[in-house]
Design a protein around this nucleic acid. Structure first.
Length: 224
DNA sequence: TGCCAGGCCGGGT
DNA sequence: ACCCGGCATGGC
């Protein structure tokens, strides 16, 4: 089976196993952006606590966060981990949003896909995965999100080498799939669903994985 | 109880 | 152009 065919087949297999995931879990676009930054290398349940703190304080909007002293912000998002770093990253994004787009996410998201991605990537603390997540789930524009699960799952199925870069993996996926926002949104969410259950870093419990029927014998399963 | 979670930056080589 | 230490909480 060719690589492109596998990538397409994964989608059907994942969808059959888990159904539509309906990502991103947020009540507003701004909440989505905040969640994207807070979830960097962090369990989502910890992010939920941090977001709940911001909501409880009525601070989950660009203007309120812009006016909030950084130490206050750090304390509120503490459950999400790396709270000093993340407070700075949130502030960097908000500074860009307020400074260049009047604090209006709609104006930022009105940029074309490529310009939007580059603009967001220009913020210190926002790398390719966070930027693509915001483009795909916030602005709802077509870009494929690559994360640790994507790399690990694709690698364990022999689709990519260990040294594949973010861009390598993204091009591979975008070359195999039709450019469709809904498909990209579900594909990434489903990969995370598979990863959480069957593709953790050091626990190769590939049994029961909806993708395992395609897993070739002798495939390295222990790393990355 | 150590390992892991939906990364990214900055300094050093 | 890579490589690596640092950043931190909470769950299993």
């Amino acid at each position: 089976m060719q690589t492109n065919e596998k990538i397409k087949a994964f989608y059907g297999a994942m969808m059959a196993a888990y159904g539509p995931q309906g990502w991103w879990p947020a009540e507003s676009d701004f909440e989505m952006v905040v969640g994207a930054i807070l979830t960097q290398n962090t369990n989502w349940t910890n992010v939920e606590r941090a977001i709940a703190n911001l909501k409880a304080a009525n601070l989950l909007n660009p203007q309120a966060l812009h006016a909030l002293p950084p130490e206050h912000l750090a304390e509120l998002i503490r459950p999400a981990g790396y709270y000093n770093v993340k407070a700075r990253r949130l502030r960097n994004f908000i500074d860009m949003l307020v400074g260049d787009f009047g604090g209006d996410l709609g104006r930022l998201f009105a940029l074309g896909t490529a310009a939007l991605r580059e603009t967001i990537l220009g913020v210190s603390g926002i790398g390719p995965e966070t930027a693509d997540s915001i483009v795909l789930y916030g602005a709802r524009k077509p870009t494929f999100v690559v994360d640790a699960y994507t790399a690990r799952i694709f690698h364990r199925h022999g689709l990519i080498d260990m040294d594949a870069t973010y861009e390598d993996i993204q091009s591979l996926a975008q070359g195999a799939l039709a450019e469709d926002v809904a498909v990209f949104q579900e594909y990434h969410a489903l990969l995370v669903a598979v990863g959480k259950r069957h593709c953790k870093k050091r626990a190769p419990e590939c049994s029961g994985c909806p993708l395992s029927p395609v897993l070739e014998e002798g495939q390295p399963v222990g790393e990355t």
